[in-house]
Simulated assay, not measured.
Amino acid sequence: MKWLNKILLASTLSILMTSCGDDDKSVDLEKPTADIEITRENGTYSPGSSILINANFFDNVALKECQVSIASLRSLKGWDTDWDSEMYKISLSGKQVSLNSVRVLEDIPVDIYYGEYRLSFKVLDEANNYSIYEIDILIE
């Protein structure tokens, strides 16, 4: 009878260890990363121009998308919004994506208030882990 108990105990432990190991491997908790830079060296734009970026995106399992938005620093302090741009989405796939001179957002409106703006890049992976990167620009 003791040998039967040992077999049952060994089988139960084996099943528990196998199921725990599988769960740990399937959960992606690692955030994606990115290297993002604007193509204008001084970060100064004029109304009517486009904002272009160069970027490299990385994830340990699978990338999903990069969501790009912009806000004026005035509106971030509670003032009226100067430019209501819709969020721009860049579809990503695989573990690594490189982009060169890609246009983000719509062109800068010609009647926009001059001043400082903040570009925000939310990079997501397939597990919805994300990282946020911000770049300040000047419109004049």
Rank of each mutant, 00 (worst) to 15 (best):
M1S: 08
M1E: 09
K2D: 14
K2E: 14
K2A: 13
L4M: 09
K6I: 11
I7E: 09
I7L: 14
L8F: 11
L9P: 01
A10R: 07
S11Q: 05
S11D: 07
S11E: 05
S11K: 00
T12N: 10
T12I: 13
L13E: 03
L13W: 09
S14Q: 08
I15Y: 13
I15R: 10
L16T: 14
L16N: 11
L16W: 10
M17G: 15
T18K: 10
S19L: 14
G21E: 13
G21M: 15
G21R: 13
D23A: 15
D23L: 15
D24H: 13
K25W: 11
K25P: 06
K31A: 14
K31P: 03
A34C: 05
A34R: 00
D35H: 10
I38N: 02
E41S: 11
G43P: 00
T44N: 02
T44D: 04
T44V: 10
Y45A: 01
Y45W: 03
S50I: 04
I53G: 01
N54R: 09
A55R: 01
A55F: 04
F57K: 01
F58T: 14
D59H: 11
N60G: 12
V61R: 15
V61D: 15
V61Q: 14
V61T: 15
A62W: 14
A62H: 15
A62F: 14
L63N: 11
L63E: 09
L63W: 07
L63P: 14
E65L: 02
E65K: 13
V68Q: 01
V68W: 04
V68I: 04
V68M: 01
V68S: 04
L73C: 01
R74I: 06
S75W: 07
S75F: 06
S75C: 04
K77N: 08
G78Y: 03
G78N: 01
W79Q: 11
W79L: 12
W79I: 07
D80Y: 07
T81L: 06
D82Q: 00
D82H: 02
D84M: 06
D84G: 10
S85A: 12
S85C: 04
E86R: 08
M87L: 03
M87F: 00
K89W: 00
K89A: 05
I90L: 09
I90Y: 02
I90R: 04
L92E: 02
S93K: 14
G94V: 09
G94I: 10
G94T: 11
S98L: 12
S98G: 06
S101D: 14
S101T: 11
V102E: 13
E106D: 13
D107V: 05
D107G: 03
V110R: 05
V110Q: 06
D111P: 00
D111C: 05
E116R: 11
E116M: 09
Y117N: 07
Y117V: 07
R118H: 06
R118G: 07
L119T: 01
L119I: 01
L119C: 05
S120Q: 10
F121V: 00
K122Q: 02
K122N: 03
V123H: 04
V123S: 02
D125K: 08
E126F: 09
E126C: 04
A127V: 07
N128V: 03
N128M: 08
N128K: 04
N128F: 10
N128R: 04
N129C: 12
Y130H: 12
S131Q: 11
I132C: 02
I132G: 00
Y133D: 06
Y133Q: 05
E134C: 05
E134I: 05
I135S: 10
I135V: 14
I137Y: 09
L138F: 13
E140Y: 12
E140R: 11
